[in-house]
Design a protein around this nucleic acid. Structure first.
Lengths: 119, 119
DNA sequence: CGGCATCCGATGCGATACTG
DNA sequence: CAGTATCGCATCGGATGCCG
């Protein structure tokens, strides 16, 4: 998401939006958190998010790793195995995320059922 | 934000992101909520969000009105006066939003201080 | 298996000018 | 005051192909 002027860098809302307001980030976090082991492999995530392209999943994971929400563990095997898990910081976001999801469920009729504005 | 495949329309995270994950929506909601009267006029919002263009503010407000988060009250005067306030649904989102902001503040060092990835 | 590189269309968003 | 209209660039994101 786009830049933020330097003088507004301290605004926490902007920070959240600019980092996790994209199309897939929250879904990845939620997916990993919900998994039984707390760990997911790349293609496991792909199967969960069937309409997310490989490119975007890869990009999203790299982004989340950069912001210290997701940990990437590479096992030097053949074939290669890479496991993604939540960091401590990532887990700490979950209560807020769940509350947001609950809000969406509670207000599905008020908000979500309305058609997305085209153009 | 982009479309969501029909078979995933029920996913609440996607719904939230597709509607309020844009650059300005949450900031508008937060701004109106924080105002003393609970009501803000168009140019009042503009002054608060100095780096938001008029076009985007207008578009964002229309969007929030469509999703029943913001109420638009027009007073037939000259010069015209338009007041924006939160709907009941909009107010109901605030606890979740505040929790999210608090999370951002708590984890500023972990997350927010990291440079936004360029390209 | 878990990616990256490239191309390209769709959308987001800002700048500017104009209006009731 | 509170917007709308138009233009144009920048970014998002999907499709495809290649690689260790």
């Amino acid at each position: 998401m786009a830049d933020i002027k330097v003088e507004y860098m301290a605004c926490p809302i902007r920070q959240i939006i600019s980092r996790f307001g994209d199309k897939w980030s929250l879904l990845v976090l939620y997916g990993i958190d919900r998994s039984e082991t707390g760990v997911m492999r790349f293609n496991e995530l792909r199967r969960m998010m069937t309409d997310c392209s490989q490119k975007m999943l890869s990009q999203t994971l790299k982004n989340l790793e950069h912001y210290n929400l997701v940990h990437r563990e590479v096992y030097p095997e053949v074939p290669p195995r890479v496991e993604y898990s939540l960091t401590e910081t990532g887990r700490s976001l979950m209560p807020s995320l769940h509350q947001l999801i609950q809000w969406a469920l509670d207000h599905f009729d008020d908000v979500v059922s309305r058609q997305v504005i085209i153009k």
